[in-house]
Nucleic acid binder design. Structure first.
Length: 698
DNA sequence: ACAAGCAGTTTTTTT
DNA sequence: AACTGCTTGT
């Protein structure tokens, strides 16, 4: 590294030129982080200690002290939080902050690969596989290998994808990974390894990249081309990383590479809130940070501005029971407040009714609906509650769970666009061919093979010369080699795709409309049971697509930043009241609410049944509870049903979460539900019934 | 040989 | 709701 001489700022000039009064708006610890100079810093920030605020002020401070905004990189966990922080910084200072480079690791890497990928042999038009697409690719390859397996239980495609991705993320052999996490599949280790190799080869040959590739290929690019690394890192004058406890190995390496020229790096995180182990995140990254950057200054934010003392006491108590001890004790000045409660409801229905009722009460007492949240472990834990909320006419948005872009019909439409973008995208071809009546897996495969040949011909004719004058596309049938049962239908499909391919000036909206016109009849045939609902989603999607200037941007954006709207979406804000938030605990990270309801806090759900027996996994479930609890500012209600219904076991007695049973009453009061007398209850229920018929759209 | 439809099983969390 | 395995029909 070039030796640097630091010129100290003139303190008298500082007070004149800075427009923000940092001293009065931040506490001493925050101020230190915000005004930190050059070098490496680790900010250990407990829940609710103003972590986001600190980052926002840090961005503004850097810009205000003359750092060019486009040389500041802010890496966050979701694009949503990057967007939010940058706009908050802009509001604080001015529009200059909009030019800060911000986003997720994946989107940042995608930009780099688009810019420099050509130099290491990646085509410019590669398509991105989300994890479901990746599983589909693996499934295509699996069907070939499986013939030799015969009759035995081979892992399903999602499991295979999880294993292959996990192996990549942790950089360990398949054997070790399967031994630890999937001992039931030990006999298939060799086949899984073969499959992983096949998968990599397939992706390379067909211009595909999965999420892991975006990170690892960027690292590969940096390793192979030092000038690229220097050039990229040279433009990263200041690097800021949020949620550092949830980075994996590859991401930590990328951070190191980005800081390798200027060395100005600030990472912010909280080891107690690490909840992405399943995705390869390693909270030890945060412990290792000071070793990797020997001159690291460690800064701590410990004063909590969010929650009442009662909520913090509970949170502190919970985290001390983790097997891996964390040295952290949050404190606050907020003394007042109602203590957290643990409520046992008779069953799931009454739990939903209780939560809805409390939400209405809180709203009556002046709390905005949008300042309340219902949190749960898994997306489907809220199904029953969603019905009840609809019945009560309470508007809500749901984060986590099924995404719009993950719905089958949206993926169908996207697959058509992907094929036009990257004609070698075999999974997308497979998907759209299977939609045609009369074409099954085998025929789709034959057609795909023929398409691959065509694509090769196109490539070679382009390579040799443009002598034949006519641009060839991979979307025409020259030979009558397919059976008449479906050849006409394939011809219609190819005609449609060719019209998009040969028309580079066509707007994204027109492209989407063209695909939709083609897809509509297929949708009706395949989803004859519920196509009206799906048609609605497609219209929503078409509106959304209008804001994109080109097809590649639309596809990349949907792959990297899935629209978080469930199919069970309410009418887009018909009334102006901001809706209640339903969210998985994972998706609620970084958010805060006046009142939080944590539902289904029972054994088998939180902790998840998958985690029991694995100490590290159980610890992570505990941290998940910690995250949920610390989202609450004033009120916290934790509930679980005493009886749970399950299709296989029927009704069974549910146990409260093991993390909650031995907590002193002083920290967590327990409560139970009593059914109100019939006469009083009846009119209220009648009224709700009326609401139901008005609001129920699903 | 292949597609399509039916019944029973299985569902974590996300870039 | 989606996936898997099985049966039936072309």
């Amino acid at each position: 590294m070039v030796r640097q001489f630091v010129l100290k700022r003139d303190p008298s000039a500082e007070s004149i030129s800075l427009s923000i009064d940092y001293r009065s708006e931040l506490n001493a610890q925050q101020l230190r982080a915000v005004t930190f100079g050059r070098g490496a810093a680790l900010v250990v920030a407990g829940a609710g200690t103003g972590k986001t605020r600190t980052l926002v002020y840090r961005v503004a401070y850097l810009v205000e002290t003359g750092v060019p905004p486009e040389e500041i990189v802010l890496l966050t966990f979701t694009r949503r939080s990057a967007r939010e922080m940058i706009s908050r910084a802009s509001a604080l200072l001015d529009g200059r902050c909009q030019h800060v480079m911000g986003g997720t690791f994946h989107s940042f890497c995608l930009n780099i690969l688009h810019k420099y990928g050509m130099s290491i042999g990646f085509p410019g038009n590669f398509t991105i596989l989300d994890s479901a697409d990746a599983a589909d690719v693996i499934d295509l390859l699996r069907s070939e290998i499986r013939i030799q397996v015969n009759k035995k239980r081979f892992p399903r495609k999602r499991t295979l994808q999880a294993i292959i991705s996990g192996v990549r993320n942790q950089g360990i052999p398949v054997l070790e990974y399967v031994e630890n996490r999937y001992p039931q599949f030990l006999e298939y280790v060799e086949m899984i390894s073969d499959l992983a190799a096949e998968y990599d080869r397939y992706k390379f040959n067909h211009g595909l990249m999965d999420y892991d590739d975006l990170l690892s290929q960027t690292l590969f690019l940096f390793e192979e081309h030092d000038n690229v690394r220097k050039s990229v890192a040279g433009r990263c004058r200041y690097v800021l990383v949020d949620e550092y406890q949830d980075t994996n190995r590859a991401q930590a390496s990328i951070v190191r590479a980005l800081a390798s020229v200027n060395g100005n790096l600030m990472v912010v995180g909280d080891d107690a809130q690490s909840i992405y182990r399943f995705r390869g995140a390693d909270f030890k990254n945060i412990m290792r940070f000071p070793e990797q950057f020997p001159d690291t200054v460690v800064l701590k934010l410990e004063q909590n501005y969010r929650s009442t003392q009662g909520i913090l006491d509970l949170a502190n108590h919970i985290i001390t029971t983790a097997r891996q001890k964390f040295e952290k004790h949050l404190f606050t000045d907020l003394k007042t407040g109602e203590n957290p409660v643990l409520i046992r409801a008779p069953d799931t229905r009454s739990e939903s009714r209780f939560v809805s009722q409390m939400i209405l009460e809180r709203r009556e007492s002046g709390v905005e609906l949008s300042d309340m949240a219902v949190l749960f472990r898994s997306g489907f834990n809220s199904y029953d509650l969603e019905i009840e909320l609809n019945r009560c006419g309470i508007p809500f948005v749901k984060y986590g769970g099924l995404k719009l872009s993950e719905a089958a019909h949206i993926k169908d439409v996207l697959a058509h666009l992907k094929v036009v973008e990257n004609p070698r995208d075999g999974v997308a071809w497979n998907r759209i061919l299977l939609l045609i009546e009369g074409i099954g897996p085998q025929t789709a495969r034959n057609i795909r093979e023929w398409i691959d040949e065509q694509a090769d011909n196109v490539a070679s004719s382009q390579a040799s010369s443009q002598a034949d004058g006519q641009a060839r596309t991979p979307f025409s049938i020259d030979e009558p080699r397919f059976s008449p049962g479906y050849v006409e239908k394939v011809r219609v499909l190819l005609d449609m795709l060719r019209s998009l391919h040969t028309n580079p000036n066509m707007s994204v909206t027109d492209q989407v409309e063209t695909v939709l016109a083609y897809y509509e009849p297929l949708l009706h045939r395949i989803y004859y049971e519920d196509y009206p609902k799906r048609t609605q989603d497609l219209e929503h999607f078409a509106t959304l697509a209008e804001s994109f200037t080109d097809r590649a941007a639309l596809l990349a954006s949907l792959a990297l930043d899935p629209i978080e709207l469930t199919a069970i979406d309410i009418e887009p804000m018909k009334d102006d009241e901001p809706p209640l938030v339903l969210s998985t605990i994972h998706s609620a990270k970084g958010l805060e609410f006046n009142s939080v309801f944590l539902i289904q806090a029972m054994e088998g759900v939180l902790p998840s049944a998958y985690s029991v027996g694995d100490h590290d996994a159980e610890d992570e479930e505990l941290r998940l509870l910690y995250v949920a609890v610390t989202r609450a500012a004033r009120r916290l209600y934790i509930s679980y049903p005493g009886v749970k219904y399950n299709r296989s076991a029927g009704q069974y007695f549910a146990k409260p979460s093991r993390f909650l049973v031995n907590i002193p009453e002083k920290l967590l009061e327990s409560g139970s539900l009593v059914e109100q007398e019939q006469q009083l209850l009846q009119p209220a229920r009648d009224e709700l019934e009326v609401h139901r018929s008005e609001t129920e759209t699903t």
